[in-house]
């Protein structure tokens, strides 16, 4: 594990946060997976987006099962590590506090899952590029786990001069008033955590297919924050909603992880 030196700036988090986990010195932990040897580089805009985060930069290399993991590390380890350090440097220069992990694996999902767990990451970045980070769409499904969303949003964007749009698609049997009151609760929580009230906007909508609407709305923003979804038949067939949104939006998506059960 390599600890990349960062600048001496104090953590930007203002609201005192008593909840444990997911944060290092008040910064929200975000996992950034990069397939380091596949010519994948750090997408532009990433260091701006994560300037206030504690980034767990996970370089991974997927090896075919014909190949022993040791064998791949022996041959590619050094190259991969130096590339990863280069990315870590870029993130640190942007202000992030960076930790790097390099893993040789036969299965990307197992590795990313394990690292999310080990580092207690609040969110995972789907690394796509963006030109600037001025406005962010935050799609919220409901009250369950919403605290993790607000901690992430406040931690990343409270001092960053970024417009935040809170978006909620009405669930079945939910009235527009319910939706409004849900979002205003989230909004005041964010304000309490130091987000400028002027920068906040809320949208409640009755959408037939929330994924489509989120993807459409995302087009007028620079990044999306959304939650992960329980695996089901639908997600098996169509992929995770966050993946669907990322595929259509083509910009960075921060997928907020559910709280992991204690071991």
């Amino acid at each position: 594990m390599t600890e990349t030196p960062t600048d001496d700036r104090e953590p930007t988090e203002t609201g005192a946060d008593s909840e444990a986990g997911g944060e290092s010195e008040g910064r929200p932990s975000v996992l950034v997976p990069i397939e380091v040897l596949e010519g994948e580089s750090l997408p532009s805009g990433t260091s701006a987006l994560l300037a206030n985060a504690h980034v767990v930069l996970c370089g991974y290399h997927v090896i075919p099962e014909q190949t022993a993991a040791e064998q791949a590390r022996e041959q590619f380890g050094e190259t991969a590590m130096s590339k990863l350090d280069e990315f870590a440097g870029a993130l640190a220069a942007g202000g992030a506090d960076v930790e790097t992990r390099l893993v040789f694996t036969h299965d990307k999902d197992t590795t990313i899952d394990r690292l999310i767990y080990e580092h207690d990451c609040l969110a995972v970045l789907v690394p796509n590029s963006t030109e600037r980070v001025e406005s962010v769409l935050v799609a919220l499904r409901g009250t369950v786990g919403v605290g993790r969303n607000t901690r992430l949003v406040a931690g990343l964007f409270a001092d960053a001069d970024v417009d935040v749009t809170l978006y909620h698609a009405l669930n079945e049997g939910e009235s527009p008033e319910d939706g409004e009151s849900f979002l205003s609760g989230v909004r005041s929580d964010l304000v309490e955590r130091g987000v400028d009230p002027e920068a906040l906007e809320t949208v409640v909508e009755d959408a037939d297919v929330p994924i489509d609407t989120i993807a459409d709305r995302a087009a007028s923003h620079d990044a999306v924050v959304m939650g992960e979804t329980d695996p089901s038949v639908t997600t098996f067939v169509f992929g995770m909603p966050s993946e669907q949104v990322a595929d259509r939006f083509l910009g960075p998506v921060l997928v907020v992880q559910r709280a992991r059960p204690e071991e």
Binding site: A69, E74, E78, A80, M81, R101, V103, H106, R114
Partner: peptide, 16 residues
């Protein structure tokens, strides 16, 4: 010890 990172990355065990 073998899987741990020694400056060249760690190894993931994936066969259950």
């Amino acid at each position: 010890v073998i899987d741990a990172d020694t400056g060249e990355g760690e190894l993931e065990r994936t066969i259950g």
